[in-house]
């Protein structure tokens, strides 16, 4: 009756620096460079841990974080952040971005009074949702104050070894 299926045939993987890689499904264990296809293998062993084997060379890999379609991957000692999008979700992203104002900010406030033990980000750091930005000691416990959003830190108000009151602004993040 209605069009049969919206089977996902392709995935777009976007890096945080806006590079776009496309992969058709089912996902092949091969990557095409020019005209030749090269085999990619994901392996793990005792000596090397998890690694990718590509053109006879091993690259260390580690999955640092993943939430929903967002992945932070450490590849050969360099970390990359990706979102994996379907053709529709990519289109949706464009639609929403154009509907919405471009600049959005998230302000992280102290959830309780306490003492700042450590500030884990600096201006310019990119943070993922769920990543700790500040460590606040309250109730004799060190609490990680986490970023509720993905974005880039634009302002850091929190200073180590200072006391803050509830709702004091700690960090501003640009989405």
């Amino acid at each position: 009756m209605a069009n049969d299926k919206i089977r996902i045939k392709k995935l777009y993987t976007l890096s945080s620096e806006n590079r776009k890689f496309s992969f058709s499904l089912p996902l092949k264990h091969k990557i095409k460079i020019g005209k030749r296809e090269y085999e990619v293998k994901l392996k793990a062993d005792e000596k090397y841990g998890t690694y990718i084997l590509w053109k006879n060379r091993k690259y260390p890999v580690e999955i640092i974080r993943s939430s929903q379609n967002k992945y932070e991957i450490l590849f050969n000692d360099i970390s990359y952040t990706f979102t994996v999008e379907t053709p529709f979700s990519l289109q949706r992203m464009k639609v929403l971005n154009s509907n919405r104002g471009k600049i959005e900010q998230e302000i992280i406030k102290a959830p309780m009074p306490g003492k700042i033990i450590d500030v884990l980000v600096r201006e310019g750091t990119t943070v993922l949702r769920g990543e700790p930005v500040v460590i606040l000691e309250a109730m004799k416990m060190q609490n990680e104050i986490i970023s509720p959003v993905n974005g880039m830190v634009v302002k850091v108000m929190a200073k180590p070894n200072t006391n803050v009151m509830k709702d004091d602004i700690l960090v501003e993040i640009k989405l």
Binding site: M1, N3, I6, L96
Partner: peptide, 27 residues
Amino acid sequence: QHSKGKLTAHERINLLFDNKTFEEIDA
């Protein structure tokens, strides 16, 4: 729907159910 960034009801149903298994009633 798409222009709002949303899928249609059928597209949602098709995503949810296994291939060709959804039977609609009272269409």
